[in-house]
Design a binder for these strands. Structure first.
Lengths: 336, 336
DNA sequence: ACGATTCTCCAAAACGTTTTGGGAGTCAAG
DNA sequence: CTTGACTCCCAAAACGTTTTGGAGAATCGT
């Protein structure tokens, strides 16, 4: 309720002394420090955030841009991640603001507004593209940032990502080990790094075991996208006997397609993300997910270290992907 | 990159004039206004947010506190709601910051920090309790706020809520019309307004049709809570033939219990929230959901109007609940 | 031609904090 | 008695904006 000036006046001290007493500087006597702190406590004094921010030249804020493009919002567990991140940032005196992208504006626009208006000390980027203009912009401005997902940027930047290549590579080999030969891939939009790298993992594995990586169909990373892609693959002359989907949402769409097509229920399928609904689909959807504990905490830590000036090379986390064994991947290869 | 002073200097104008030119005041000539705006554009000038906030005595921020208590995060579609809300607030120059509650601290603590530090112009509260200390605090401070869910506060405040009473009342009557007599209720923690009012709706309907409202069990609003509550109700000497659950999460837990108990699959069940996974449970979960379009936009609008000083009475929205007809509620009453 | 009005512009204050660069006073050593 | 070190405190500047209260010049009405 009160301000530093009033508090100082009521104590017969200068603003300087009160400020320094509260901040625990050694150049104010223990006696006055106590006196000041008692008074501040009693008055319910909290420093005015805007004033502090102006003076310290720090926004005490970190922004995360929410993608709204593909109709659906970001990665799974996204809110949990944000919440964890915000909690850990708060412990360091930073708050997390969410920066949605209004229709008609680009994510770059938003970054610019936040950065040039000195509204944030750092940014958190999700859904990176292989060539991501936001990353280029932030690098040119020298603003600390961390991305969820890698990019193909020539200059390194902090990120946290799952090793999608290895995950999809392993999944493909697993199907092959089960005897599958016609292993199809339902891919996400290839401008996204995660989608591209997952496709590459599948492709490399197919090549490794000497199979043609031809059964691939790309679509938007949504249920509908997966549905349509699956229908297309199933209409091929030589159908796939197993399907690897870029995301669980697409996999769920593909499941719908499988139910509608004769013999579709014979086809093995696996997704990626471990959505909470996977346990309830029929059949329960086998999937993969990134390992590593509290993702939000990791992001917060990386952000803080980036703000502190640690080099980008030290701020890159690539987490292994683990297999989540439910049921949908257990379908024997259909005899030709 | 630049500030007002540099811009003014480079133009040979005063800071005042530049500021007013950019803000479009009439007391600067059209010619200079253009000149200033061109220069500002070219320099990529954006006003420093902290400075503006300090001077205008507005934080340009709205905080939403994320409950983290029951292990699980808030209502369904929560992130979509936040995103929509943030988008509409942004159009009015406000940003949304998320304020998680660190372990060991109360939500009240967080409110206090944000409000007394002048960090926000308004707050958005979710998961209100019948007697909510956050509401009392904000009312005492005179800070604009909107809650998601009503409270029993004697002084009115802005809110958006679903008419849980009517929804659960109607659901109960629907079961009764189907011939059910032993209609049980799995209730959420009664200190939450939503949980209480839903139980009241069930109770009132039971009373209305002359049935005993005795088959009720309360638990935490989680899958596990629903599971345990259902087990308890099923172990009663006279089992329910239909179950109304306070939330879908609890209903999903209850479904698990039904599968484990002999004859459980004969029992009709309905939840509330319309989680995306409801379509995939077996059987697909019938449920209810709040009507009304973009919830986030409504919250944003109410927040802005509250900030503008409209009286609380004009800022209360009670939305009807609609029935979502899937399959789980279609079970004939078991003959006794 | 002269006061009144309108047009443009500006100096300075204010927002509330943190930080710089001392300034008194005290005390012990020289 | 002087010097230096130390302790405790403070005045003033600075952060970058918005807003107040005019000031000077040009224009208008009479």
């Amino acid at each position: 309720m009160a301000n530093l000036k009033q508090l100082a006046q009521s104590l017969g001290l200068s603003i300087t002394t009160v400020s320094r007493a509260l901040d625990g500087y050694a150049d104010v006597s223990a006696a006055t420090r106590e006196r000041v702190r008692d008074a501040a406590e009693k008055a319910g004094y909290r420093p005015n955030a805007s004033a502090r921010r102006l003076r310290r030249q720090r926004a005490e804020l970190v922004a995360v841009t929410l993608p709204s493009d593909p109709g659906h919002i970001g990665p799974p567990h996204f809110l949990d991640m944000l919440s964890g991140c915000a909690e850990h940032l708060a412990a360091a005196g930073l708050n997390l603001v969410i920066a949605p992208v209004p229709r008609g504006e680009s994510e770059l626009e938003i970054c610019r507004r936040f950065v040039d208006g000195r509204r944030v000390d750092a940014m958190l980027l999700v859904r990176t593209k292989r060539k991501d203009e936001r990353v280029e912009f932030l690098q040119s401005r020298g603003i600390p940032f961390v991305t969820n997902g890698r990019t193909e940027s020539p200059v390194p930047h902090p990120y946290i990502d799952g090793d999608g290549f290895a995950g999809f590579h392993a999944a493909t080999l697993r199907f092959h080990a089960d005897g599958h030969q016609r292993i199809g891939h339902i891919a996400g939009p290839q401008e996204y790094y995660f989608a591209h790298v997952r496709r590459m993992g599948w492709q490399a594995a197919m090549q490794k075991v000497g199979l043609q990586a031809s059964l691939c169909c790309e679509g938007p990373p949504t249920e509908q996208g997966g549905y349509l892609a699956a229908l297309k693959l199933l209409s091929q002359p030589s159908r796939p006997t197993a399907l690897i989907c870029a995301t669980d949402e697409m996999a769920i769409g593909a499941l719908r397609a499988l139910r509608e097509v004769e013999g579709g229920s014979q086809i093995a399928i696996i997704g990626h993300d471990d959505l909470s609904m996977d346990a309830f689909t029929s059949p329960p959807l086998s999937t993969m997910r990134m390992t590593g504990g509290n993702l939000g905490a990791s992001f917060a830590s990386l952000l803080l270290r980036a703000i502190a000036g640690e080099p980008a090379e030290d701020l890159q986390e690539l987490h292994p992907i683990e297999f989540v064994d439910r049921d949908s991947h257990r379908r024997p290869p259909i005899a030709a």
